[in-house]
Simulated assay, not measured.
Amino acid sequence: MAIDLPARIGSLRIMLTPPPALPAQRHAAVLSVGARCTVRHALRQPPAVVLALAPEGW
């Protein structure tokens, strides 16, 4: 958690686990693909967040 307000996540670490059969020389490629991940992009440039109450029966 961040130490200042508002309360939020201060940092996030994403660990990628390559398949055991993947040669070590391909590990850099896995990291490269991870760097282009949609979730990572969203965290680096946060989207607008809209809060709403769900309609009854939703």
Rank of each mutant, 00 (worst) to 15 (best):
A2W: 09
A21M: 04
R44N: 01
A29P: 05
W58H: 14
G57C: 05
M1F: 04
L22I: 03
L12D: 09
Q25K: 10
M15K: 15
P20G: 08
P55Q: 04
H27S: 08
E56H: 07
S32H: 14
A2M: 10
I9K: 04
L31G: 13
A24R: 15
R44M: 00
S11Q: 11
A28L: 07
R26G: 09
A28Y: 11
R13T: 12
M1V: 05
A42H: 14
R13K: 14
P20R: 06
A54M: 07
L51G: 08
Q25E: 13
P20F: 02
P23D: 09
G10D: 04
L51R: 10
P20H: 07
Q25W: 08
G57Y: 03
P47V: 00
H41S: 00
M1R: 10
D4S: 11
P19I: 09
A24P: 14
R26N: 14
S11G: 13
M1W: 04
W58P: 03
L16W: 13
A7D: 12
A54S: 14
H27N: 12
A52S: 05
P23Q: 10
H27M: 08
V50Y: 03
A28M: 05
H41V: 00
Q25Y: 11
C37H: 12
D4M: 07
L12W: 06
A28W: 10
C37F: 04
A2E: 12
P6Q: 07
M1L: 06
A35I: 08
A24I: 13
G34V: 03
I14F: 02
P20N: 08
L5Y: 12
A42K: 10
A48V: 15
G57R: 03
R26P: 09
A48Q: 15
P20L: 04
A35R: 15
L16Y: 13
L31N: 14
G10C: 02
L43N: 03
A29D: 13
R40P: 00
L51Y: 10
S11R: 14
P23L: 03
Q25H: 15
A21T: 09
L16G: 14
P19G: 12
A7I: 05
P18A: 03
L43D: 02
G10K: 03
A52E: 06
I9P: 04
L16F: 15
V39Y: 11
R8A: 01
L16T: 12
A24N: 14
I3K: 11
A48D: 15
L22K: 09
A42Q: 13
D4P: 09
S32V: 07
V30Q: 04
R13Y: 09
I14A: 02
G34Y: 05
Q25N: 12
V49D: 09
A42P: 06
A48S: 14
A28P: 03
V39M: 12
R44T: 00
L53Y: 14
R36S: 13
R13V: 05
A48N: 15
D4I: 05
P46D: 01
P47F: 00
W58G: 12
R13C: 05
V39W: 07
V49N: 10
C37K: 11
P18E: 04
V49R: 10
A21E: 10
M15I: 15
A42C: 11
L53F: 11
Q45N: 11
P23C: 06
W58K: 13
R8I: 00
P23M: 09
A52H: 07
P46N: 02
P6F: 03
A21W: 03
